[in-house]
Design a protein around this nucleic acid. Structure first.
Lengths: 427, 427
DNA sequence: ATGAAAGCGCTAACAA
DNA sequence: TTGTTAGCGCTTTCAT
């Protein structure tokens, strides 16, 4: 009873063919736009398809072609404005090439990430953009990449995956530049709010270099440490406060910090939601910014110019990050399509080794494409100097003779930025 | 040469079966978790699958089962924090039930929306959540819904689609409540920034009721007009300023408004990005808020409590909106699954009419499920009174004798809200 | 418990 | 130009 009874689903091509009085092959030819068909059958088929409300079944088509015109996107939280922007950009780029987006959130949960990867794999996405969580992911990703899935890492590098393209931001340099800005202003008690505070000890000895294996929060913490070192300041663990990516948690953390360490004169936030929590805490603390305490935020969101004082921030190219990842992915997918097309005759630059040890060694006895080394794109963020950072206040005690110039107690600008905002490179 | 040569793709079940020395049927049984298999073959198959890195092909599975475990989500812009939150909530709800998300942005472009719908259709999503653009979409959506695709409208009602579930917010009531708050404070020259300003003439006579056919921006404009009418104020078209959903455009629009109409004492923004543009323009204008001009924003974002004065806003339950849509969709999909399961024997509450006129009349000669009337869920937003709204200033001219009480010129609170923020219902 | 075979909806050789 | 047929990878009778 193939295709004879209606089963509730949409009409298939055989129903259209029957209605049009032609074979499924001809129906396919006109509806799929391949091969040739006479004008007569063309109209008959089109009319029938129209009447029945026919839409081709992409699943069947994909099953044959081996491609789904879909790319997977895995991030921690699409509700976070950073990823919302980045994903939007990825979408725009790949959609222009005809690809749709299968989206998954992991909430930084490795198990959720594993599940997401499995799903993407089973749904046979043509490519993958992922902001990976941890080293545990690397192995799985390598397996998938070696099995031929074009993959691009977004926002977080993975040293264990040199075969894979990685698009990131120079987080360490950005953070270093932000904190150097503070030390230059004379600050010495500089606190940082970070999701990676727990890794402090490990990061003390980490190389000061971007594009390695650290997640963004850790990379930024490394930058913080580097800037302190450069200024001859010994990092005080009490000033490295941990907070998860949650505004209220950040607010509480900063409040506690200020209570316990009233001598802190500057604060560096390593993420947009941490920044917003810190601003709230600062406002609540009654300490005036930047006179009593300076603040550098991360991620140049709209509201950072709306609050007073306007926030000095590290701006990261969120959309460009997503767009770059999308473009890289398109490249890789194109390459792969090309190589698959020519796969029957000869592998480019590689004879017809059918079952050499190399492939076996890759783990699963199947053709493990040895990929050209993955490219690393490191986009540059930069420090935007605005009004929330100013010279370090005199240490408490008897007021020194060289008093502050009068009339500048509020809304003071950072020195060297006479008007508006000032951009500072962070290379 | 079925499955014999490796074609670069992942291993199929026949390769696993061969490697395990069993038939594809048994391999399927153990790998798919259906039917029975002896412990012996089970281990053999599992071992082989493991070794080959086998992952079932979801496409083939879907082709058979007729379901993809995927729901489509179509919004205007996932980069907009409103949709980012809502989509996140949808994702969480449906993912818990095992569904993935196929995401598309339309940028309010009807053509893009049509394309997105086509794609979702061809990819055979099991359900659809959509923030529709316009009446043009309704027909297409109806076709799809009648063809059996569970569909839920998000954020924007469509009167032409009574068969479909709709989850929206009481936009008109919210806006009315916001503007009533202003009139109660004595404001009479109240401007509004809206994406729907061009529809002003049409909306003058629109019924003051939520859940009809207006898009959110229009519904809010209707609420604005209603509140003015109630207060006996004749709406001045010059105070209804248009702006697209773009922060800078909104800022320019408000700046122009204030230049041309210096007598405006209050401003109502109908969207989060418009709010942020308005705040910027206000700050730039040098007019002090709320003493010289009051402001009500829309959408309670984090930054609205960070700026000074803290913004009075209409809070809308963004996440709950998405969650409700997700839940409704799950319900519908479950219903449909149930009815499809029983379709071979008997339709529930409907004899086996095979080809009655009713189905034919639906347009395409196929089974047009006549759906139970769609449900409407209207979630309630509410006004949060904070510091950006205050009594209307005295009209300019000679200062009247009844002077302002001294010492309250800045950061004044709205009357009736002695401490913190005040919630006001908007039913 | 297992295997052979049909079939989901479509595309692609191959014949006619 | 058109129809016949095999087959994508899997599930599912139906025999055995």
């Amino acid at each position: 009873m193939r295709n004879s009874q209606r089963r509730g689903g949409p009409p298939s091509i055989v129903e259209v063919a029957r209605a049009a009085g032609v074979s499924t092959a001809t129906a396919g030819r006109v509806l799929g736009g391949y091969g040739q068909a006479s004008a007569a059958s063309r109209t008959k088929v089109e009319e029938a398809a129209q009447r029945l409300g026919y839409r081709p079944n992409g699943l069947a088509r994909s099953l044959i072609h081996g491609s789904t015109e879909t790319v997977g996107v895995i991030v921690t939280d699409i509700g976070n404005s950073f990823f919302a922007s980045a994903v939007r950009a990825v979408t725009d780029v790949v959609r222009a090439a005809g690809y749709e987006i299968l989206l998954a959130n992991t909430d930084s949960d490795p198990a959720a990430e594993q599940r997401a990867l499995t799903v993407m794999w089973e749904k046979r996405v043509d490519g993958l953009v992922i902001a990976p969580q941890g080293p545990g992911t690397a192995e799985r990703l390598r397996t998938m990449a070696e099995a031929g899935l074009p993959t691009v890492l977004l926002d977080r590098p993975l040293a264990a995956l040199p075969q894979v393209d990685q698009v990131t931001i120079n987080n360490t340099a950005c953070a270093r530049s932000a904190v150097a800005h503070l030390t230059r202003l004379g600050h010495r008690r500089i606190a940082v709010v970070s999701e990676a505070a727990r890794d402090l000890d490990r990061l003390r000895d980490a190389p000061v270099r971007d594009g390695d294996d650290e997640r963004p929060s850790a990379a930024r913490l490394v930058g913080y440490l580097a800037a302190l070192r450069r200024a001859g300041i010994d990092p005080d663990p009490a000033l490295v406060v941990h907070s998860p990516y949650d505004r209220d948690a950040a607010e509480r953390a900063v409040r506690r910090l200020l209570r316990r360490n009233p001598d802190v004169t500057a604060l560096f936030c390593t993420d947009n939601v941490l920044s917003s929590g810190a601003v709230a805490a600062l406002q609540d603390s009654g300490r005036v910014c930047p006179d009593e305490i300076s603040l550098v935020g991360f991620d140049d969101q709209d509201w950072t110019t709306l609050v007073r004082p306007r926030l000095t921030v590290v701006r990261q190219p969120r959309r460009e990050l997503g767009a770059a990842a999308g473009r890289k992915l398109l490249e890789r997918m194109a390459e792969r399509a090309r190589s698959r097309a020519g796969t029957a005759s000869a592998e480019p630059g590689d004879g017809d080794r059918t079952d050499t040890g190399a492939a076996e060694a890759a783990g699963n006895g199947r053709e493990a494409v040895d990929l050209p080394a993955g490219e690393r794109v490191v986009l540059r963020g930069r420090l935007i100097t605005r009004d929330s950072t100013g010279p370090a206040p005199r240490p408490s005690g008897p007021t020194p003779l060289a008093a502050e110039p009068s009339g500048t107690m509020s809304n003071r600008r950072a020195p060297g930025s006479p008007s508006g905002e000032d951009e500072e490179d962070s290379a």
